[in-house]
Structures are given as structure tokens and as C-alpha cells.
Amino acid sequence: MAHTVLICDDAIFMRTMVGDILQQAGFDVVGEAETGRDAVEKYKQLRPDLVTMDIVMPDMGGIDAVREITSFDPGAKVLMCSAMGQQALVVEAIQAGAKDFVVKPFQPSRVLEAVQRVLG
């Protein structure tokens, strides 16, 4: 059975792009979230195998969302999506429980490598 994914990003463009990369690789995108709060709600509801999480989002940022998600489900597998120059924030996200990260602009091969590491 295909792995299920929840994509969290406030930009439709980014959600679409990540969704396309993952769908083409055989993943089942079961939900999308536009805010951190939305991400936490949808995670509880959908229990996906994988979450991709933007760092900067309105109404609860990605790092706080990771914190809430991992305290709800310590086994949650969250992949951070970072822009250049957010090094310190990514470290914070990993400390908060995220498992790996990719850096924008996304290269499909890089995204899939990171996903494999998170799920592997």
C-alpha cells in the first residue's frame, strides 16, 4: 500500500510542487494544510505516514506544529521544508522532533532521498 502524506505549506505553489513530486513517486497525498494549527488538526484526523512541513506559516509556525504533532504522536515522521538561510530554525525543528529536512528550491531527487531516510 502506498504511503500516505500530509503536505503543510502556506503557498499553494509549494504544496502543488511537493505533491507532484511525491505523487509521481507513488505516494498518496491524503491532505494539505495551510497553517501550523491546520497541520496539527489534520494530522490528528488523518494519521499520515509522512508530513512535509514548511517552517514559516501563519497561525502557528512549522516548528511549533512539529512540537505539537510529536507530543501527540512521538512516532510522527515529519520532514521540514526550509528556505536557504534558515539553518538555525532547521536545527530547532530537528530538536523539536522533525526527522529530516529539504531545502528550497526542491530537487525531486533530494526530496525523495530525504523521504526515504525518514520512512526507512
Partner: peptide
């Protein structure tokens, strides 16, 4: 490696 610092941090984790 992208964000090598973070990657190194993950190694330590």
C-alpha cells in the same frame, strides 16, 4: 550537502 551544519547536527542526534 545542503545546510551542512544542520546535517552534521542530525549526525550527532
Amino acid at each position: 550537502t545542503t545546510l551542512p551544519g544542520v546535517r552534521a547536527f542530525i549526525v550527532t542526534q
